[in-house]
């Protein structure tokens, strides 16, 4: 169990050293990611210029969702990458090189897309979170702190699993790299807003089947002590870690299935 983590750290370390050779690029990209992240947030503020509540949600509460989603998104992006280089890897045959190494392919793909510039977005999320937590009156207790500690890893695992499934589409159509954006940026966009504003069918699909509601929405209901506008039982708020485990199992199977397809169809 420990050895793969150490290897992952070495692989990441190698990429950090590579990227540090281009300090100016790194600084520019990180600053750019930091700035461009604020556009989404400006959009939230513009909406609340026009209404006081979105459904039952106040601007601070939506900002709380926003901040958590951003942090989870950025950390997932940092840890496993968002598969934007992946179509290229398959097209030029570099995925084959991973297949002749004695390691799992998903592990190697994840370990080869570490980009420090993604810290820019994480930093933006943290800033917003700091501001929001300061301005919200949250009744902190042991349960809420525990939830706060658990929700981010669970969110990362859920996001990551969804992205892996999206990335798998590339095994069938290498031109279809754009599909991954629907899963990554689309997932983040959805998780930034309360899912109770969606129509029923879209909510069932995007929030429960693609379990994006468990990224921020349910944990946030508990932390913010909000009754669920949809009237779901309270224990659902605590299901994120379970959903995360299911998601990762599903993603693993889909990945194995996709690689098997690749290995018999020849990419």
């Amino acid at each position: 169990m420990v050895e793969p983590v150490l290897l992952w750290r070495r692989l990441v370390g190698a990429q950090v050293r590579s990227q540090l050779q281009y300090r100016v690029s790194f600084a520019l990209d990180a600053t750019g990611a930091f700035l461009i992240s604020f556009i989404d947030f400006l959009a939230v503020l513009v909406i609340f210029h026009n209404v006081h509540r979105l459904g039952t949600w106040s601007v601070r509460e939506v900002a709380f969702l926003y901040a958590f989603s951003s942090i989870s998104f950025a950390t997932t992006d940092l840890l496993i990458g968002h598969f934007d280089q992946f179509p290229q890897k398959i097209r030029d045959g570099n995925f084959d090189i991973l297949l002749v190494r004695p390691r799992g392919t998903l592990f190697q793909v994840i370990g080869s897309d570490f980009q420090m510039r993604r810290l820019g977005k994480a930093l933006q999320g943290l800033l917003v979170l700091g501001f929001v937590i300061g301005s919200l009156d949250i009744p902190w207790d042991a349960g809420r702190v525990a939830m706060l500690v658990v929700m981010v890893p669970a969110a990362i695992v859920i996001f990551g699993s969804v992205w892996v499934v999206g990335g798998c589409l590339v095994f069938w159509t290498t031109d279809g790299g754009e599909f991954t954006n629907a899963f990554t940026y689309g997932g983040n966009f959805l998780a930034q807003y309360p899912v109770d504003i969606l129509s029923t069918w879209l909510r069932r699909f995007l929030a429960y089947i693609v379990p994006l509601a468990f990224v921020c929405y349910f944990p946030a209901l508990y932390i913010l002590d909000k009754p669920d506008p949809l009237g779901l039982p309270r224990f659902v708020d605590f299901l994120s870690p379970v959903v995360a485990l299911v998601a990762v199992a599903v993603a693993g199977s889909v990945w194995r299935f996709a690689v098997r397809h690749y290995r018999s169809a020849g990419g």
């Binding site: 909406i47 026009n50 209404v51 979105l54 459904g55 754009e178 599909f179 954006n181 629907a182 689309g186 966009f189 959805l190 807003y193 504003i197 969606l198 129509s199 879209l202 995007l206």
Partner: peptide
């Protein structure tokens, strides 16, 4: 596909307004 997903999410957000 991606445009359509974004369209739906964005439409429902603004409908809530």
């Amino acid at each position: 596909f991606t445009n359509t997903i974004f369209g739906f999410i964005q439409a429902y957000i603004l409908l809530a307004v």
